[in-house]
Amino acid sequence: MARRPRPGQRPPHEPIRATSMWRVDQIFLVRHGQRIEVICSLVNDQGGLRNLNIVAPTSDPVKAVRHAAKFVAGKGNVFSARQARLRWAREQVVTEQDELIRDYQLEDEFLDEFEETLSAVRDQMR
């Protein structure tokens, strides 16, 4: 039997859903020698946050971003990457102004590969 909250007491939290849908909010790139780490910040429909770290086996930022997009879209529960902001991580910037600069070309590369992979995954599910 479920207990009712006493007056002045907060109601119990809603249960966590087993399947939450996530979207890519921000993407950060970090150089590690000959490789690039791509950190994708995900947000779900209930306000939850999660980071996915992917180390791409390349030093080319375009290939690294496309590699990460395939990985993230292949997860199955990430539904969108539209309006995701892409920046180099704080360690990579030279001036404080660099922190504010978005790389629109790499954002487009990520979104294109994400949409292609997501489309292929959906086609396989049909």
Rank of each mutant, 00 (worst) to 15 (best):
A81L: 04
A73P: 00
L52I: 08
D25W: 01
M21C: 11
P15I: 11
R126E: 07
M1K: 08
G8Y: 02
R87T: 10
K63V: 03
R90Y: 10
R85S: 13
V94T: 12
R3H: 06
L118K: 04
M21I: 14
W88P: 03
L111A: 13
Q9T: 04
K75W: 09
F114E: 08
E99P: 01
T58P: 06
W22M: 13
Q9M: 03
V38Y: 00
E96H: 06
T19L: 11
K63M: 09
T95Q: 07
G74D: 10
A2T: 13
N44L: 06
V38F: 00
M21F: 12
D123N: 11
G8F: 03
A84I: 05
Q83P: 03
T19K: 12
S119H: 07
E116S: 04
R122E: 14
D108T: 13
V65A: 08
V78Y: 00
Q97K: 14
A68W: 01
N53A: 13
D112Y: 01
I27M: 01
N53F: 03
R122G: 10
L52P: 00
V38R: 02
K70W: 04
V62M: 04
Q83E: 12
Q26T: 12
R35P: 00
K70T: 07
E116H: 07
Q97V: 15
N77R: 03
E107Q: 15
G8S: 10
L111Q: 12
L111D: 05
A120L: 11
